[in-house]
Simulated assay, not measured.
Amino acid sequence: MEQQEDRFTDPAYRAAVIDLLGTLAYGELSAFIRLSTDADLAPTLAAKAAVAGLAATEYAHFDRLRARLVEIGADPEQAMAPFVEALDAFHERTKPSSWLEGLVKFYVGDGIASDFYREITAYVDPGTRDLVLGTLEADKRASYVLHEVRQAISEDPIKGSRLALWARRLVGEALSQGQRVAADRDSFSTLLSGTGELPGMGLAGIVSMFSRITEQHTKRMAEMGLSA
């Protein structure tokens, strides 16, 4: 544990981890707010309850990330602030017009973000890695969304084509957002590309990372019964 905390004496590393936890924390808080709103679009009380449960999980993740930021001496609001504009702009450009679009957005957006953060955890200390990976557990969330989307498509195949177009738009927006966040923050870029004694994946590795994220998205589309 002592060795793990020693890494935080490196200002560049500490700043990178604060950025990582800050962007993830705001993503979880945004997901909570978005899902709480999307629950109003749910067609049944059971569906409303299910989405409310998803929202509660997102808030619990946010709370854990906020606590860790405080623990390492960072102000959670300041840590999240640099990422508010980019994430809010993404959500503004991708407002769902229906219950199913909201579910697909949650599944696609959450999946891409999770893949991005999982890649980054290879370059952080064990405690930070465990915390981040713990907030990305999505088995129950994925199962619920897959069930609802597959059932809707089986009942009306035309919805599948429309949702596939919607998902393609989402992935383009999400990848652009991820690249923008990675490029705009020096500390985040350092964690990814590496510099000096701080290892990273390098520029070629970053390109490969986004390629892997795109491949994972294609697999998730297939799981939903949508063409990528």
Rank of each mutant, 00 (worst) to 15 (best):
V149T: 04
L136C: 07
F106I: 01
K140Q: 10
V124K: 08
A152E: 06
S154C: 11
E119L: 05
G127T: 10
A113Y: 03
Y107I: 03
L133M: 10
E148A: 14
S114W: 06
R118V: 05
Y123N: 03
R141E: 14
D115M: 08
E137A: 13
P126D: 12
Y117G: 14
I158K: 15
V149Y: 01
G127E: 14
S143V: 01
I112Y: 03
P157F: 01
G111H: 06
I112G: 00
G134S: 01
I120C: 00
L146N: 10
T128A: 09
R150W: 03
Q151T: 00
H147R: 12
I158V: 15
R141V: 12
Y117A: 15
D156M: 11
R150K: 11
G127M: 13
Y117R: 15
V104G: 08
L131V: 02
S143G: 00
D125Y: 04
L133A: 00
E119K: 07
V104E: 09
V108F: 11
D110F: 14
R150G: 11
R141N: 13
T135G: 14
E119Q: 08
L133P: 01
A152N: 09
P157M: 03
G102L: 04
L131P: 05
D139I: 15
D110V: 06
K105T: 02
E119S: 04
T135F: 12
L133W: 12
G109Q: 02
G127I: 13
G111R: 00
G109W: 06
V145E: 00
V149A: 04
S143E: 12
L136S: 08
V132F: 03
T121W: 06
G109M: 07
H147K: 13
G102K: 04
L146K: 12
V145K: 00
I112N: 01
A152S: 10
P126I: 04
L136D: 07
L136R: 04
I120V: 05
R141P: 07
E137C: 04
V132L: 09
T128K: 08
E148C: 13
L146W: 09
I158N: 15
T135V: 14
G102H: 05
V149G: 02
V108T: 11
S143P: 00
D110H: 14
A138S: 11
D110K: 14
H147W: 04
R141Y: 10
D139N: 15
G109I: 01
D110S: 13
A142G: 10
V124I: 10
P157Q: 03
